[in-house]
Structures are given as C-alpha cells and as structure tokens.
Design a protein around this nucleic acid. Structure first.
Ligand SMILES: [Mn+2]
Ligand SMILES: [Mn+2]
Ligand SMILES: [Mn+2]
Ligand SMILES: [Mn+2]
Lengths: 218, 218
DNA sequence: AATTTTTGTTAGACTATTCTAACATTATAG
DNA sequence: CTATAATGTTAGAATAGTCTAACAAAAATT
C-alpha cells in the first residue's frame, strides 16, 4: 500500500467514527483533495476490497480496510507517544511528524517503539492505541460540558488536537489524569469555573469544555 | 526536494567519494534505475543547480548539491545511531529503516535525536556523521589488510555494510574500538591471524581484512 | 411537482517517476 | 584508423496521483 492510499483509509476511518454516513465530499474536505480525485481513488481502493463503494452511496470500509486503517493509526499514535515520552516534544508538536513516520515500512521498528514505551494503551492526547490487529478500544467519555455543578471527573482525553486548543490546555496547566471539579456554570454563556486537582481554579468557555473528555468520579 | 531527488543526490555523493569520476551508468547501477531515467533526473537536478551536467561528461555535485546530500546523510546516520543505541537494533538491521526515515521533513526531529545521542560524530558502522552544514569529516583509516605482522591497530570503521559482512564481524565478536594485533599473515592466501583486545584470537580472510578499517597504534 | 442547490461522476489534462526501443557518441581493440 | 563495444541520449509510453471543466443524480426548496 502506498502512503497516499494509507492516508485515504485513515481519513475514512476517522470520519466513520464521527459521522453516521461518510460521503465523497466529506472525504474530499478532510483530505483537502478535490472530489474527482477522491472518486477515482475510492474506486481503486474498492477494487482492492478495502472500501465498499457503490455509486452515489455513502462510503464504508471493508473489514480489511478497517484493519489496515487501524494498524496505521496504531503506528501514528505509538509514534506520537514516543515523540513526547522520549524526544521531549510537546503534545502540540507531534502530529505532523507522526503523519509522516506512520508510513515507514518496518514492523520491527514499531514493535520496538511499542516495547520501549511499555505497550501504552493511549497516545499523548488520550486517544486509544489500536492493538496489533488494528482493533480500537471504544472509549465512552463524557464531555466536561455535560457535567453539572458539584460533579467531579478525571480528564481522560482531548476532543480536538487543534494546536490552539492544546496550547490553551497547557496554559491552564491541565494534564491528562487531572481531577476536575465543576464549581460553577454561568447561566448566560455556560462558562465553567473548575477546580483542578483540588488546588488551582480555572475558567473554561463552553467550547473549551466540549473538547475536554472526562470520566465521572463516583 | 522529493524523496526521489534526495536519493539521487545521496547516491552521487557516495559514488563521488569512491571514484574519481562518476558516470550516468554508475549512478544507474547504484540506484537500480535504468539509464534514460537517470539521464532525465540528472537534467532536472542540473536545472535546480544541484548537479553539474554536460552531455557525455562525468557527473558532479554542485556546492549546493554536496551540502544537500551531506544533510541527508547526516539524517541517515543519526537515525542509524539512534536505532542501535535506543531501540536495540543490530548494526546490520538499521540501514533499510534509516533509508526511509532520512526523508522525514522535520528539522526538529533530527535535532532532538542528535541531542539525545549527545551529538555523535560517527554512526554505528564508524562512518562520520556530517555536521549541521552537511560537511563530512574525512577519515583516513588504513585497511587492516595493509598492516604487517606484529602491528597493533584500533578498529575504527567498516568498509562494507553488507549484511553478511556485519554478521561475520559480530560472530568474531569484534566491535568498533577494539584493539587488533596482527599475529601472522599466511603467505599463501594472506589469511590473517589476529589477537583482539589481548584476549581472543581470530582468523580473517584477506577480503575480510580489506573491509576492516583501522587506525595504527603508535 | 418543478426548480434550484448540493453532491457525485466522467472526461481529459498535467506532473513526477519510471520504462523500452531506437539512435548517437565515445572509448576500446584490433 | 576503422570496427566493435560501451556508454549516453532521445523519443515515446506507462502508472500514480492530482487538477479543472462539464455533465448527471440526488436532495432540498419553493
Ligand atoms: Mn495525531
Ligand atoms: Mn500520513
Ligand atoms: Mn546506512
Ligand atoms: Mn532513502
């Protein structure tokens, strides 16, 4: 499989998680590639039985396509983790590099990284690292936005890897695993005042709170 | 610059070190790409002022081409070193992976690896790592083959990265930095009996001794 | 139900990299 | 110094991946 094909599969995989149905237009937008190009690549991947394609119908990955995509995402996330843990990169700097290294052809290379990291289950953004069969564990975290005043939760994952969002989280001194207690929610604009790890008070916009994924503490 | 262009420059660089003059045929053989293809790529790189090209004349790198090639080789060798030192690869396993990773677009990535390795000067095969300007230090080591009976030398570099050769060196338990004393050279076939680090005796064929590069001990 | 908008497809073209076949030049060997 | 061999070049075609322009189908609006 070529780097290009791999990127199409990965994009379709991600879109399929976010949306009920995925169109050629969706894929086109997500890859920043014009529709006719996507159309022909989809046909090609369909002929390789990685994508199920019927004219004018939504796109889906075949079993094989899902597995292939999962394995690429596995490599991507292992690399991101490695870049943060061993090369000292910030979590806002690793995506672009991982986007390239995920295409390296060497099973062994990724196995070693996995081993060096002691077989991590999540990447630096809290996203699950698919297993050796490309299988992705389903996380069902809650958006912090959905929490009520007084509730306590643990910060498990980010809902966006946008640079500006990650940098904001850094600035608020929030880290995965932190305990977040909702102190107050403004009626007017849903702005949240929260207590982090029982010691630092922070304010979050509603949009920000949407992208902070948490597990409620019992 | 594309991966393909980078590989052409690198190949020409290496050939230029080994031979007085480099022909289109040499480059073609070394890249395993047919001559007409090489011919057109050479023209393209010439138009980018990376290669000096005149019809029917030997090929040379321009100043810029040399620098570009040096920088790619720098990345290649840093990666090889990293793979050996931090991911536990054998020196016979790293070339293929480095061949891919050398094309990753991220200055910072290679800077971090350089730092993590504490700015190494040589790769796992004893070859010099070009500096940040692509400048390669010239090593002038002697072939062990040229040493006389009784001489002592230090194993500095290998003259071949062929898998079978590297594996042989491993089997003989020879490592870069080892002290080698020439005990005896057979008149008949130039086979060498040597003493390694004053404790293990080994036998080397003439061909083998040609590929072991050493610095004479005074 | 007819019209408009959105989405999808086809056709044709372009660049990058590669190839084979044919021809040209240079080098080598009588 | 010619004939042959080796090397180099040109021409033309193929594949992968991309694009624009034009047309077609499906969905959304009157
Ligand atoms: Mn990422
Ligand atoms: Mn990618
Ligand atoms: Mn190498
Ligand atoms: Mn390479």
């Amino acid at each position: 499989m070529t780097l290009t094909e791999e990127n199409y599969l990965k994009a379709l995989f991600h879109l399929s998680l976010e949306n009920e149905e995925v169109s050629v237009l969706d894929l086109s937008k997500s890859l920043n590639i014009k529709m006719p190009t996507v159309n022909s690549m989809v046909k090609k991947l369909s002929s390789k039985e990685l994508i199920s394609y019927e004219k004018y119908k939504p796109l889906t990955l075949t079993q094989g396509g899902k597995r292939a995509a999962g394995l690429i995402i596995r490599k991507h996330r292992l690399v991101e983790m490695f870049l943060v843990e061993h090369l000292g990169f910030g979590w806002d700097e690793v995506h672009e590099i991982a986007e390239q290294i995920e295409h390296i052809k060497s099973q062994r290379f990724f196995d070693r990284i996995d081993q060096l990291l002691d077989f991590p289950k999540v990447d630096p953004h809290g996203s699950p690292i698919p297993d050796i069969n490309g299988e992705v564990a389903i996380q069902n975290y809650k958006k912090l936005e959905e929490c009520h005043e007084g509730q306590q939760a643990t910060f498990m994952s980010v809902g966006s890897s946008q640079d500006s969002f990650l940098k904001l989280i850094d600035k608020l001194n929030l880290k995965l695993g932190d305990k977040i207690k909702v102190l107050e929610i403004q009626d007017f604009d849903k702005t949240m005042r929260v207590l982090v790890n029982n010691n630092s008070e922070q304010t979050l916009s509603q949009l920000g709170a949407t992208k902070i994924l948490v597990k409620l503490n019992v």
